[in-house]
Design a protein around this nucleic acid. Structure first.
Lengths: 191, 191
DNA sequence: CCTATACAAACGAACGTTCGTTTGTCCAGT
DNA sequence: ACTGGACAAACGAACGTTCGTTTGTATAGG
């Protein structure tokens, strides 16, 4: 036998893929059904609404990035060690969960107000991890004293969040090389 | 009298605003009509199709960025002078034409294949301006020799393209300050 | 100066299609 | 036997678009 029945997780995964590729409003329930070999209506055996699927995907993204930041902080070490772990962790989250990350980054403002608020709060908390690390590094002298933690956290995250838009995991640049280039660029900017 | 009749340009401008805010697929012709105090059907006095509007907005974006790069190159000067002009010009384009820039950056892949191809080519040509400037700066020693023009052009453009996502023109950071921070960050990364 | 003509802008109704979703039924696996 | 997954049909609403018509305004001819 080649086909299995689908689980709710299968539906959410496929939704992440299509939302990442075509956007939330560019994806219909019938599109999503086709992706799974189902009718659009059959998805309602697994899920309560289309919006529900977006919530699930985006919140998984928030959870993944949050967990990555927590792990980077938990290990301790100097500011630049923590920062490297934050960067590498971010890259891993994006590349290991590309569709979820893309949907998280690009489709979060298609959420209804209450869910969007929660996701933006989580995003701000994640950004604060970067800000705090930059602040610590400036305070202990490992980063230049003209580094502005608030602004530079945004700049660094801008570079990291754009990775999904151009990096090709099957291309000529390896993930290790990507991380090395990021470390060099950000390191040079801060020290 | 308070109301005037609308021109095609008015429709395109409003389309840019809604496409930037809600995305192409998140904007209906009736939404767009309401924005102008019209019925959705009335828009077809000005425009041939919805896709037509997207083409117009996105291609204006491509034109604006292209013109900015041409201007930055035309003045000549050292690599870092050119780069500063490229950065400042990019910021000006984004902030003076926010809706067009946002639509250009986020909705270009909603275009049909032929139009998308042309826009991606223009985008690549714009990026090449940055790559070339970095290459020149490495060659003449004004930038560090571990700078990778291809990768660093992407990094710099990632920072620039993200500006529309967080910068608030009415907020506490002035445009001059934004440009200064960008110059500092990128300058430190490259030298 | 008036008036007929031309034209662009907008209307309102309707087209066929697709949307998200609901319903009832059936079948396969436990 | 029960139950969860899927089907097939259908719902009302909204979609992009077309149509014939009306409105307002500018212009050219008498």
């Amino acid at each position: 036998m080649v086909t299995t029945r689908n689980s709710r997780a299968d539906v959410v995964t496929a939704a992440g893929r299509l939302f990442a590729e075509r956007g939330y409003h560019g994806t219909s329930m019938r599109d999503l059904g086709k992706e799974l070999g189902l009718l659009g209506s059959s998805l309602y055996s697994h899920v309560e609404s289309k919006q529900d699927l977006l919530v699930e995907v985006v919140e998984e993204g928030a959870r993944l990035f949050g967990a990555s930041a927590d792990a980077a902080l938990a290990q301790g070490g100097s500011a630049d060690e923590v920062l490297v772990r934050l960067i590498d962790g971010h890259v891993d989250v994006v590349l290991d969960n590309r569709d979820v990350a893309r949907t998280f980054l690009n489709e979060a403002n298609m959420l209804d107000d209450s869910h969007r608020r929660r996701v933006l709060d989580a995003r701000d908390h994640y950004e604060e991890t970067f800000r705090g690390t930059l602040r610590a590094g400036v305070a202990d002298g490992s980063f230049r004293d003209d580094v502005d933690p608030k602004t530079d956290a945004i700049f660094i995250l801008s570079v990291l969040n754009a990775i999904e838009r151009w990096f090709d995991p099957g291309g000529s640049m390896s993930v290790a090389k990507l991380k090395a280039e990021l470390g060099r660029f950000v390191g040079a900017a801060l020290t």
